[in-house]
Design a protein around this nucleic acid. Structure first.
Lengths: 206, 206, 206, 206
DNA sequence: AATGAATGAGAGTTCATTCAT
DNA sequence: GATGAATGAACTCTCATTCAT
């Protein structure tokens, strides 16, 4: 009987709802207790669904995580795309551009904070997660690369590919620091100083 | 209840060897498969030691990890101290200073690559690990803070505390990128560009 | 952490049967080998049930024991209550009353003999068991106390509270002796003599 | 090599001391934590002796317990013998005799309280312990039997063998109650009332 | 489609006992 | 004689997954 073990793609409203409930429950539990400390029956129970039902929508625990990761990625993707599109405008206030990126990224990082940390925790031991997160990274880097290519007159960097990487890592590190770390000084000061570092590096007056 | 539950402190050569064997085996397995996927009997087997023996040197799996972390920290501490001491010299070539720090840090990060990633993975869910790694972070930041304070004439930053954080995060991010990531371009180019970002930020001619 | 760790309350016939099977198996093994010498997988195996299944009905071995103890208590409670109610009759033949109590108690003690001994064995080291058995003891003593209070004209004792205790201990000791000990003389002789001791103590003609 | 596994009978002072230390340590631990919760390495450590050394004096944990039981028995034996001898006096004040027996037995029971309870706990599952304790019981019963036989004029009982048993169980129960139970009323009242029960049973004026 | 009871391999850990030194 | 490190079977308990209903 081929297909009998197949994972169902819910089409009916009630089914979709159930799947959503499972994902929400899993998300909450992964954030609260971490992936390894969360059991599948526990997810099912929180979702008010039977264990068996859970396994008819997902092959295993890992798949649930991956689906959540996918959704998280999507939201990031949307943001990234938005900033990609902004680059098409003929005139860009880069100071404004970077600050806006910063602030919005910090917001979304805070929103997904615990799930993000869980993703980081699994990154090392899970090739699939690695692949997804790396893809994300490369996408943003590419945007930065394009940005620098189209404004070579403004940004004075010698090695443009390396610069895209360096820029990406700087920004990412600052965002993480503000969003995830219990900082001793006010966050705004770190944001300001981080932006200043970016401006100086790109040789934009600050 | 003291006594028989006490952990053995090996004094004889053979015992020390055994403890070392356990730590090596655990280190290898944690790196290969991650902490959660590694079981204590597995560690014992790889170390060619009985389970019971393992439990006479360590209270539990966590303690083994913490001991490895301690050793790793020590090596980092030595390096950090070295760079702290260098600051006492009346004249410092900062370009040389940062490059040297970079390169040596990258080396040690590569050496401990997988274990480092595992540490990061557990950081989120383990307060003790968090404490240790955070302490490390703060120590290096303090060094940077001191460095900037003693050379205010050289480095032109407004908010010196924020700058120390920003500088730390930049450097750390670049190191991680070079040491841990499968980069598409040559690592030397990233190092150079990373240093350039630092120099520009600190307003040292490059 | 509520939920998935919760203990299953069997409602369906098959489930109830399974729980019963586990309890029977545990009862048999505790009687045969004692609590400490009986392992949970052993109970599961004898019950023809998986270890996991056992742990879905009971949090641990101790809970299994306590449930058995509860059932045992209940049966004793029923008997005790019966004798408590008999006291409400206006006229009681105390010789008959005590003999009947004796004989029925001996029967129930013999029925639960090994389990009883195991309970005694654990009494010392388990506060919960202690509490339950002590409660039982006090209940019976109270009955005896009431009995003596309502018949002060019949029973000539000075210190009525102490007398209730002494009477309880006598009866209990005789019951245990007959039910649990490999006696060299006929049990009926011990019963008779024990009752005689009770009658004489209470100053009822024998 | 026959005898090489044999258990050593210590003759030298230092050896005897060591064995004593082991027994003391074991006694303390059995009383504190119970037999099953006490481990042999723990005993050895408390005795300031190596595990191996412990096993050269005792074949196993059980043997240690049995030796302690033996010593405990001896002390009880001494007391029992004393009371046996008292019976040889031509004139005995039985009221005094029983009270004295009571009080001294209670003292020794309190002294060995925890060990006694531990013995009771193991009685059920250990034939050897059973044998020893039963032997004790029978010995005291025999004394009582002799006592009753030699004073048939004083004590008016019909079935003298049954009476010895009944008397023994009464006394034993009262002693246990006073020595081991957290009584709500003053102990002296229980002792008095217990003795009164004995006197009335034996038809000695009280 | 859905249920949830059942599975059982495997986790972490303990400890009575042995034996090389 | 003495040591105490080492053993490894056995323990209690968990949980991702299955499958009869």
């Amino acid at each position: 009987m081929p297909g009998s073990n197949a994972i169902r793609m819910p089409r009916q409203k009630r089914s979709i709802e159930k799947k959503e409930r499972i994902l929400s429950a899993a998300y909450a539990l992964f954030c609260e207790k971490g992936y390894y400390r969360t059991s599948t029956p526990e997810i099912a129970e929180r979702a008010q669904v039977s264990t068996g039902c859970l396994y008819s929508y997902f092959t295993d625990k890992h798949m649930i995580f991956m689906e959540l990761l996918g959704r998280c990625q999507q939201e990031f993707g949307t943001l990234t795309n938005m900033f990609q599109k902004k680059l098409q405008h003929s005139f860009i206030d880069f100071q404004e551009y970077f600050r806006s990126y910063f602030v919005q990224m910090i917001d979304i990082h805070i929103k997904y904070k615990n799930f993000f940390l869980e993703m980081t925790a699994l990154y090392h031991s899970d090739a699939e997660i690695q692949f997804h997160l790396d893809q994300n990274k490369e996408q943003i880097q590419d945007t930065l690369l394009r940005l620098m290519r189209q404004s070579t007159d403004l940004f004075h960097v010698h090695d443009i590919e390396a610069a895209a990487i360096v820029l990406y890592e700087m920004i990412d590190a600052f965002i993480d620091r503000v969003a995830f770390y219990e900082n001793k000084i006010d966050q705004e000061r770190i944001i300001k100083e981080g932006l200043r570092a970016v401006y100086r590096y790109l040789d934009i007056a600050d």
